[in-house]
Simulated scan of single mutants.
Amino acid sequence: MPITIPDDLPARRTLTAEGVVVMGQADAVRQDIRPMRIGLLNLMPDKISTETQIARLIGATPLQVELTLVGITGHVPRNTAADHMAAFYRPWADVRKEQFDGFIITGAPVEKLPFEAVLYWDEMRRIFDWTQTHVHRLFTICWAAQAALHHFHGLPKHVLGEKLFGVFPHRNLAPCSPYLRGFSDRFSIPVSRWAETRGPDIAAGGGLTVLADSEDAGPCLVHDPRHGALHMFNHVEYDTGTLADEYARDVVGGASMRVPAHYFPGDDPARPPENGWRSHAHLLFGNWINEIYQSTPFDLTEVGRDRLG
């Protein structure tokens, strides 16, 4: 089944060229099927690239998915055109009365700031609480994962002395988890962050399970069943060239940056990198979508009631 996105969203052209089946909204309503509703709160600076990355992964599953792009209410992004935001994004205040089968919240370039210093932190707290009554399953990425664990469990965020940057080997700690179905014992994932959530803090959080970690990069994937959430500290969704683009941006901006580890062949930025994580990205998102499908109510108005009881 295809993913349903707006006909003129830039991601549509990219996905169609890659062979991803994309359905127009007019065609979708003619099918006698309830699509899975997935919301994407996109906090990344390069919103168009992130839209494409996430849509590619959820559009590869065999289920029909309707993607809704969501933004922080009243927040004006500096790196995305206002007409793009107006055309394709809905502020959270406009969707807060609606239900979603799944909701994804991305990372944000605010990792060095205390949570309470982030301009939209109050709304983020309301969004996290809202997911407990209006969202069946939550998926958070990078800063959003740190923020969710801080909000729900009081876990601290530790700012690093230098950026943790590269493609690092990870261990599958829970091969029986439905979210890691089909995963190798070891696999690589891109990492790009200035802060971390530490294993001992997670162990003290109560009811949390680390599904995957790295000897170099620490915890990677955390399951929080009480809040219906999966938290990914790293960037399995990244394109092949995303770390290269970030490295070039930082160098041009005058930052003293190390070459991303284990990424460029021979650590030579002049050589094109190879993607060794694509299959695991599809596995993870496919497993997440499947778990939603197996348990979400057919009647969307029933979403969240299992946590109210």
Rank of each mutant, 00 (worst) to 15 (best):
I58R: 00
R186Y: 00
I289N: 02
L149P: 09
F115E: 13
G228E: 05
T61S: 07
Q53R: 06
E123T: 02
V259S: 05
R90Y: 05
T68I: 01
N290K: 03
V21S: 08
T240Y: 06
S192V: 03
Q132Y: 01
L221H: 00
A229S: 14
A148G: 15
G19F: 06
T242M: 03
V191S: 03
L173K: 03
A28D: 13
C220L: 12
G59Y: 08
E51W: 05
G39F: 03
T50C: 14
T140E: 08
N79F: 09
R171P: 05
S184P: 07
A174R: 05
L138R: 15
S295W: 00
T106S: 07
A117V: 06
G207K: 14
H151K: 10
A60I: 02
F103R: 07
V22D: 10
A11F: 10
S214R: 13
A281D: 02
R271F: 03
E274Q: 13
S184N: 12
E51T: 10
L308Q: 14
T50S: 13
L57F: 08
Y179N: 07
N290Y: 01
V118C: 15
P272A: 07
D122I: 02
R278Y: 08
I5W: 07
E302F: 05
D27Q: 15
L67F: 10
L208Y: 04
R271Y: 02
R56W: 04
R13Q: 15
D8Y: 08
A229Y: 00
L149H: 02
V21T: 04
H235Y: 11
L9T: 04
D201F: 01
T242G: 04
H151R: 09
G276N: 04
P77R: 00
Q25T: 09
D27M: 11
P272D: 13
G207P: 14
P169A: 04
P265M: 11
T52V: 06
A28Q: 13
R226E: 11
P169T: 03
A148P: 09
L180G: 04
P6N: 11
P62G: 06
R271I: 06
D32R: 13
F152V: 08
F152H: 09
R126P: 03
V251N: 00
L243I: 11
N42G: 12
F168H: 15
D299I: 13
D216T: 13
V222N: 01
I5H: 02
D245N: 14
S49D: 15
F165V: 10
S184Q: 12
G241C: 06
N42C: 14
N290I: 01
G166H: 09
D224N: 03
G266D: 08
Q99A: 01
E246N: 07
D213G: 12
A145E: 06
G166L: 09
I58A: 01
H280K: 08
G218I: 04
R30T: 07
V303D: 07
T61G: 06
G39C: 06
T4C: 11
G304P: 11
H262R: 15
A26C: 01
K112E: 15
I5P: 05
V210L: 13
V95F: 07
D224S: 06
L283V: 10
V65M: 12
R78Y: 05
L43A: 12
V135M: 10
R78C: 06
E302S: 11
R305N: 12
P297F: 00
T52K: 00
I127T: 07
P6K: 06
L284M: 14
R12P: 14
R278P: 09
H158M: 04
H170A: 02
